[in-house]
């Protein structure tokens, strides 16, 4: 930074006016993103907030009701609180596991001398297989009467009779967590491996010379250098996790439309599912649903800030 300042002062004042110094470039670089965001995404967000202060079914007139939606949501809607609880629970079930497993797998795959790309490609298949197929397969596998899982469990004598996975409060959450972990492992692997790729080899060589091996290398060398990538994954997982919707919906989306919204006794109801339910399924309350979306937004901000503070490196982010 000093170098720049000195250089800058060394330039005669006259030509400073004409020269576009490095000071301007960051703004120019940031401009496309900011502009396009302002142009395409800001209005919808503001509109949605205004909408959340109204009662509207999409067709008739909008009636202004102030913050009544929010009040009702937080104090008088047990399903919303339940959905909040469910979402957090499921996040707790899948985020740590995915991180640990993803990192481990990435590291192992990275160490391979051959077959790196092969394993990477195979493990990314769940991530690119369309959710529809996945929901189908999972609800099939865990079917009470004919599912593969129950068949195996009863055959090997672990269980007497098939467990009604899909209708058990914890069973439902566990299956959804499983779906999410299974789906995201490949994705985490890719991100971690991309991060590992740019760690220069000489760092490892130097460590080896110093006598570091295996686990020690991993914990002391690799992981710190992956700090920023890990922060990215943690924060984005929190954000994505709070918006969990695809997996539960597809698991319980029903075959041919006889959907069981929320799973058994609403134990799989997530906040976005509640949002969709309010707007399009059980009701048509767009204003109320917008209030849900905004409350979710605030929660996401809260959780992201917390998780960022907890995981980001201590020194000021360069």
């Amino acid at each position: 930074m000093n170098v720049n300042a000195e250089r800058y002062d060394a330039i005669p004042a006259a030509s400073r006016k004409r020269r576009w110094g490095p000071r301007m470039w960051p703004y120019l670089f940031a401009l496309p993103f900011v502009l396009t965001y302002a142009a395409f995404q800001l209005y919808p967000i503001l509109y949605s907030f205004v909408l959340s202060l109204h009662d509207w079914n999409g067709i008739g007139a909008k009636t202004y009701i102030g913050f009544k939606n929010y009040v009702q949501l937080w104090t008088n809607d047990p399903l919303f609180i339940k959905s909040l609880w469910n979402t957090l629970l499921m996040m707790l079930m899948f985020i740590p596991l995915t991180l640990i497993l993803g990192l481990t797998l990435a590291y192992w795959t990275f160490q391979l001398t051959r077959g790196k790309r092969f394993f990477q490609t195979i493990n990314v298949l769940p991530y690119i297989t369309t959710p529809v197929a996945i929901g189908f397969i999972f609800s099939y596998m865990f079917d009470w009467q004919t599912g593969l899982v129950n068949l195996l469990l009863t055959k090997f004598g672990i269980l007497e009779e098939g467990f009604y996975w899909l209708q058990d409060p914890w069973g439902s959450r566990a299956i959804i967590a499983l779906m999410v972990i299974w789906r995201n492992l490949g994705y985490f692997m890719i991100i971690f491996m991309a991060g590992m790729t740019v760690i220069p080899q000489d760092v490892y060589e130097a460590a080896k010379v110093d006598g570091s091996t295996g686990l020690h290398t991993f914990l002391r060398i690799t992981m710190p250098l992956l700090r920023n990538i890990t922060v990215f994954l943690v924060v984005t997982s929190m954000i994505g996790g709070l918006q969990l919707f695809d997996e539960p919906k597809l698991l319980y989306g029903g075959w041919s439309g006889s959907a069981q919204v929320g799973g058994p006794d609403n134990t799989a109801l997530t906040m976005i599912w509640k949002f969709v339910d309010e707007s399009f399924i059980s009701n048509t309350r767009f204003g109320y649903a917008s209030a849900i979306a905004y409350s979710l937004f605030l929660l996401i901000v809260l959780f992201s800030v917390i998780s960022y503070r907890l995981t980001a490196p201590k020194e000021d982010k360069r």
Binding site: F40, S48, L51, F286, I300
Partner: peptide
């Protein structure tokens, strides 16, 4: 940037279509 990342995608749906 981080804040924009936190906005749930469904939030601005209707507004986006209108725009």
């Amino acid at each position: 940037v981080i804040l924009t990342m936190m906005v749930p995608t469904q939030v601005g749906l209707i507004g986006y279509i209108i725009e």
